[in-house]
């Protein structure tokens, strides 16, 4: 078996006695799309926050490409090759779509202590940024301000930014949240195009999406991973059916 891209072991996080993350073990293999599902309050967001560095775990370790990143601040995780999208879309509002992606490129092209040359004329930033926008089919909106984008487009932009960091692992926190059917299917095809090219850890509510995209699924209930396996294995797992899927797949 190849060395895992992400190895989470014994992760624990509690809030005032409530275990939001209860001894979580999770392995994400190279180039797989790994989905984390679970009912509301299962601790998915808390888990993502710890993986991206926004929250500090009480115990446990996070290894990324064999490196212990448990105590890395978010920006160092990004530099190491771990990109995240946010559950609530998060882009730089006062800037254009292109500027947002160019910033993501810039962050990974050495330090930004360059005070003189205009960044907008910097082909080293603009060209890769445009490529990423084409990849998520947002190129024609490059010069619009981000607040002119629809919700779905903003999500696409977030993916473009994640890609612009040349990340090896994409942490996608409910990329379809709040989307209409059309927007959602556009996102699915964007992610499908990335499948096999990038390693993805996907937190998602929409079961159709999860079963369409995921190679493997981990089920999180009350902060615990109760099952991990292929979509078929998870679908037929008794504990999962009881705890989560309920009648939906019965």
């Amino acid at each position: 078996m190849a060395e895992p891209v992400l190895q989470v072991s014994g992760l624990i996080k509690s809030f005032g006695g409530v275990l939001a993350t209860d001894n979580v073990h999770l392995t994400v293999l190279p180039f797989e799309t790994h989905a984390v599902i679970g009912p509301n309050g299962a601790g998915k967001t808390t888990l993502i926050a710890q993986l991206s560095g926004a929250l500090r775990p009480d115990a446990g370790e996070i290894h990324f490409k064999g490196r212990d990143i448990t105590h890395f601040p978010p920006y160092r995780r990004s530099l190491a090759g771990l990109a995240r999208s946010f559950q609530i879309t998060s882009v730089v509002q006062e800037m254009t779509v292109l500027q947002n992606v160019a910033l993501a490129v810039q962050a990974h092209r050495g330090h930004s202590f360059r005070f003189w040359h205009p960044a907008a004329a910097d082909r080293e930033l603009i060209e890769p940024a445009m490529e990423r926008l084409e990849q998520v089919s947002l190129a024609e909106r490059a010069h619009d301000l981000t607040n002119a984008l629809s919700h779905g487009e903003r999500r696409q932009l977030e993916i473009a930014m994640a890609l612009a960091t040349d990340a090896e692992l994409l942490l996608l926190d409910e990329p379809m949240a709040g989307m209409g059917i059309e927007e959602s299917s556009r996102m699915v095809s964007t992610l499908q195009a990335l499948k096999g090219e990038k390693t993805m850890l996907l937190v998602e509510h929409d079961m159709d999406v999860v079963f369409t995209l995921a190679d493997r699924i981990s089920v999180l209930v009350y902060g615990k991973v109760i099952a991990t396996g292929s979509p078929e294995e998870v679908r037929s797992d008794d504990a999962v059916r009881r705890a989560y899927l309920g009648d939906e797949v019965a």
Partner: peptide, 29 residues
Amino acid sequence: HRIVNSRFGMAVRGAKGNEERMRAVGFNV
């Protein structure tokens, strides 16, 4: 004028617009 349009300036202005996002994308804000 030069500073705010440079890479450095973009990093600083980006952090004004959305600090968390800038960190997530790899900036030591």
